[in-house]
Amino acid sequence: MIKIAVVGASGRMGQTIIEAINQNDKVVLGVALDKGDDLSAMVDQFDVVIDFTRPEATLEYLAVCVAAGKSIVIGTTGFDESGLAAINKAAQQIPVVFAPNMSVGVNLSLKLLEMAAKVIGEESDIEIVEAHHRHKVDAPSGTALKMGEVVANALGRDLSKCAVYGREGIEQPRDRETIGFSTIRGGDVVGEHTVSFFMEGERVEITHKASSRLTFANGAIRASAWLKGKSAGLYSMQDILDI
């Protein structure tokens, strides 16, 4: 039985992960921690950490996992370049699953987006719209950025150069080489993402809507179980789902 440590246990996502663990017969809750608790003092109580907290906290938990030789599943978003570098370095020593979205449906959508971009991307104006609850602090969402990255890579573009996050003050026609992002924040929206490929006379839209955080929690637990016996490395949900 795989023992899981849930950090940020009193938060919305933490509570949902604990609920999902209790519904799963392949894993067990080893320890639940909140801010101020010392993960390093509990390394004998878990095999893998599931972390959906904040970048600064994640990097602290990551360091503990490296020192103890434990695996970690990271669903946290909003890392800067140094944070991403730290994750990549840690993955040289321990197994790390790092995904901006643990949902099976979202990761299937990423594959569909790659296919769509290769077929119609060059003839399309591409726009990404995402909506989340009022408490989400990073924008655009990590999932939206990942979707943009997948589309850009399929088209041989660099997202850092072709992304447009706002059009105020841009007084010129839309550049087809760009990928636009729009962000909505309000209410209790769990997460909605739509990528639209606008062509002359038609458009294709790929949409994912999450109605419960359990979809992310179950994906993280699936990732935790998949890590058993894996060697050090940086893994994504694409690896876990084999798509």
Rank of each mutant, 00 (worst) to 15 (best):
2 I>R: 10
3 K>P: 09
4 I>L: 12
9 A>K: 08
13 M>P: 08
14 G>I: 05
14 G>K: 02
14 G>W: 06
16 T>N: 01
17 I>K: 04
21 I>T: 03
21 I>D: 02
23 Q>S: 13
27 V>A: 05
30 G>L: 10
34 D>V: 03
34 D>G: 10
36 G>M: 14
37 D>Q: 09
40 S>P: 02
40 S>H: 10
41 A>L: 10
44 D>N: 13
46 F>C: 07
48 V>Q: 02
48 V>F: 00
49 V>H: 11
52 F>G: 12
55 P>C: 13
56 E>D: 15
57 A>V: 13
62 L>F: 11
63 A>M: 04
67 A>P: 02
69 G>Q: 06
70 K>I: 11
71 S>K: 14
71 S>T: 12
74 I>V: 14
76 T>M: 07
78 G>E: 06
79 F>K: 00
80 D>N: 15
83 G>K: 05
86 A>P: 02
88 N>Q: 15
91 A>C: 03
99 A>Y: 03
101 N>D: 15
105 G>P: 03
106 V>F: 15
110 L>N: 06
112 L>Q: 14
112 L>W: 12
117 A>Y: 15
118 K>D: 07
120 I>N: 09
121 G>R: 12
126 I>T: 12
126 I>Q: 14
132 H>Q: 05
139 A>L: 13
140 P>S: 13
140 P>F: 11
140 P>W: 15
141 S>V: 06
141 S>M: 06
143 T>A: 15
143 T>S: 14
148 G>Y: 09
148 G>E: 11
149 E>K: 09
153 N>S: 14
154 A>K: 11
155 L>Y: 08
155 L>W: 11
156 G>V: 05
159 L>R: 01
160 S>P: 00
164 V>D: 05
168 E>L: 13
170 I>E: 06
173 P>C: 06
174 R>W: 08
177 E>V: 08
178 T>V: 03
180 G>K: 02
185 R>I: 03
189 V>A: 15
191 G>M: 03
191 G>H: 00
197 F>M: 06
200 E>T: 09
202 E>G: 09
204 V>M: 01
207 T>A: 05
207 T>N: 09
213 R>L: 13
213 R>F: 14
215 T>D: 07
216 F>N: 11
217 A>L: 01
218 N>H: 07
219 G>P: 04
222 R>E: 14
223 A>R: 06
224 S>A: 15
226 W>E: 07
230 K>I: 07
231 S>F: 05
232 A>M: 00
233 G>A: 10
234 L>P: 04
235 Y>N: 05
236 S>M: 04
